[in-house]
């Protein structure tokens, strides 16, 4: 089976400074892949390469290949790439619009105008993000009135609304309390049936709980990756073992 996303000898530079070194990593479809590693190891940078969010940073360039369904992402149109590869950010960032409009925004920019279709999309996405029951009576109130955890689930629902194939999550729970975190983690498990999820996380427990595959990064290099239970029970690399057992990080 060919992986849906694949990094081949990927290096990334911010001006003179190299942030990723020769990373090769196949990401399997319908799996949850977690990237772990200490702060500044390049895991978020790698994630942001996938849908070319790094394009927004001046002087940033990549070498090597990053393939989406076998096609180099630099040959893809950045806009349609981001439609196929959605992203959930570290801090919940709902637009200052109503809950409904937050979710309808994506479909609208992609040309859907029919009110009924939009209504259906909004309801479906909120249900998928397990938020519908909490907000169904106030869909037209401001999204900024939601709690942090609800806002993050709204952001996930918002990214589902453009029907992506891959969802990138950049430490989606780092700004949330444990209960909200548990809800998001459950949600990630559900999403796996329909989507491919890549999650960057600080928390090894979280990686162990939600992911099928885990990659460990250190100083811009991918040290090793493998099936999550394998990685956590008997890592191959000494560095990985030290990190997992909490001896540094």
């Amino acid at each position: 089976m060919t992986p849906i996303l694949e990094a081949k000898n990927l290096s990334l530079f911010y001006g003179q400074k190299q942030a990723l070194f020769d990373v090769s990593f196949p990401f399997e479809e319908h799996a949850v892949t977690a990237l772990i590693g200490p702060s500044g190891c390049g895991k978020s940078t790698l994630l942001r390469c996938m849908n070319r969010m790094n394009d927004l940073i001046p002087n940033c360039r990549i070498e090597g290949n990053l393939l989406f369904k076998g096609k180099d992402i630099r040959d893809c149109d950045a806009v349609s790439l981001r439609k196929d590869i959605g992203m959930v950010f570290q801090r919940p960032n709902p637009f200052p619009k109503s809950i409904y409009d937050n979710i309808a925004y994506g479909p609208k920019v992609h040309g859907i105008k029919n009110k009924n279709t939009l209504d259906e999309i909004v309801e479906e996405c909120l249900k998928k993000a397990v938020l519908y029951d909490e907000v169904k009576d106030r869909l037209h109130e401001s999204a900024l009135g939601l709690s942090g955890g609800q806002q993050q689930r709204l952001c996930i629902a918002r990214s589902l609304a453009v029907n992506p194939e891959v969802i990138l999550m950049d430490e989606p729970c780092s700004a949330l309390d444990p209960i909200a975190t548990a809800k998001i983690e459950n949600l990630i498990g559900d999403l796996q049936k329909e989507y491919t999820v890549l999650i960057v996380t600080h928390s090894m427990q979280q990686a162990a709980r939600v992911s099928d595959i885990t990659g460990f990064m250190y100083m811009g290099k991918l040290i090793e990756y493998g099936e999550t239970p394998q990685m956590f029970s008997c890592p191959q690399n000494e560095l990985t073992e030290k990190y997992i057992t909490g001896r540094f990080g």
Partner: peptide, 25 residues
Amino acid sequence: KDFREASLGLGATRFQTISRVLLPA
């Protein structure tokens, strides 16, 4: 800046982001 990233992350074009999110905000 979050708004901009969120909108671009959904596959909106730069102008869609400007006209539908940033200007209203």
